[in-house]
């Protein structure tokens, strides 16, 4: 039942291509109408504010690629900051940073990874639980107060400062994204991640340790959330139990906008970076236009809806041919 008209080969473009086009149009449009948008300081501001969501988004991409999700990232970010604030007065800063990252990764990654990977519990439920637990601990330890601290140069550079001419957070993003792209593209682990998300049964049958792969992605997500926690402290020169509250919505939105499929098996780090950069650019543009921050949340939600709809459209379009063959593979 062909309709007689041919769309451009939508299915052959990378999923994030459309978002990249929107991002460029948005930048051009804003640069023309609001000169302040295109100032060096504002552009650097966009990059700096995007860094933390992108780092979280990269971890999220790993979990979503395996058909899971990690909702605990915002809480873990706050938890790590609080942990750092405790350690930093007792030891050299580098040790404090490393220790808080290691502890967070082992504890959070361990809980999420064991429950989801090993015991096969639902990732949404498990990480909703850890979201509550680690946010709660952060409040308990600090009694709800924000802890200021002297972060020193290293932490500040990671979160906000410059490393030579390059903004520190940008450097972190480049390193983390680069490593992740390499891991997903060129290692057996990366192939296993896609395989587990694409068809867990087939992956298991092919001899892949599916539970180990799933555990690993939650460790990665915890590790990156911890790193983001350190960056947040560097950015604000303080650790707040409220840090990153609700950020998981924006992160998941950005990851999906970037073309990663919620049901797993399809997606890319490149897409995530572009998706989250786009969300951040939109927010920045709205701020410059004087739109209230409440509206910005509405816009994020609408964009997410639009992205998911678009993805469904793509899937239907490219799936039409497939579905014929599917019914063939079933009985008779």
């Amino acid at each position: 039942m062909s309709r007689g008209f041919k769309l451009p080969r939508l299915s052959s473009m990378p999923a994030w291509f459309g978002v990249l086009v929107l991002e460029i149009l948005l930048i051009i449009g804003m640069a023309i109408t609001q000169p302040v948008f295109f100032s060096a300081s504002n552009l650097s501001n966009i990059v700096r504010s995007s860094a933390i969501p992108i780092i979280l988004g990269i971890g999220m991409t790993f979990t979503i690629l395996t058909a899971g999700i990690d909702l605990s990232v915002g809480s873990v970010l706050a938890f790590t900051g609080i942990l750092l604030s405790g350690f930093i007065t007792h030891m050299p800063r580098v040790s404090a940073v490393l220790l808080s990252i290691v502890i967070t990764t082992i504890v959070v990654g361990g809980i999420n990874g064991l429950l989801i990977g090993k015991l096969g519990l639902n990732s949404f439920v498990v990480t909703l639980g850890t979201l509550g637990i680690f946010r709660g601990i952060a409040y308990l330890v600090t009694n709800g107060t924000t802890r200021s601290m002297d972060t020193g140069k290293l932490i500040n550079t990671l979160g906000d400062g410059n490393f030579g001419p390059v903004p520190g957070p940008l450097l972190v993003v480049i390193v983390v994204a680069g490593l992740s792209i390499w891991a997903l593209r060129s290692t057996y682990f990366g192939r296993d991640v896609y395989a587990v998300g694409g068809n867990e049964f087939a992956a298991r049958l092919a001899g892949i340790f599916t539970s180990r792969v799933k555990m690993t992605v939650y460790f990665i997500s915890a590790l990156l959330a911890a790193l983001a926690g350190i960056m947040q402290v560097g950015r604000l020169q303080s650790a707040a139990p409220t840090a990153g509250a609700g950020i998981e919505l924006a992160v998941v939105a950005g990851v999906l906008l970037g073309g990663t499929r919620l049901s797993g098996g399809v997606g890319s780090i490149t897409g995530t970076v572009i998706g989250l950069l786009f969300l951040q650019t939109v927010q920045n543009s709205l701020t410059i236009q004087g739109v209230s921050s409440y509206w910005q949340q509405v816009v994020t939600g609408v964009l997410l809806g639009a992205a998911v709809l678009f993805d469904r459209f793509r899937a239907n379009y490219s799936g039409r041919r497939k579905s014929r063959e599917e019914s063939n593979v079933t009985k008779e």
Binding site: Y188, R191, Y194, A195, G198, N199, F201, A202, A203, L205, A206, G207, I208, G265, V266, K322, E326, V329, T330
Partner: peptide, 22 residues
């Protein structure tokens, strides 16, 4: 094939090399 052996979103090459750790 659809449910149990192939990974639909992967290339022919990746599907073929899936068991290679073994």
């Amino acid at each position: 094939r659809r449910e149990k052996s192939t990974i639909r979103d992967m290339s022919i090459r990746d599907n073929l090399l899936l068991s290679i750790h073994g």
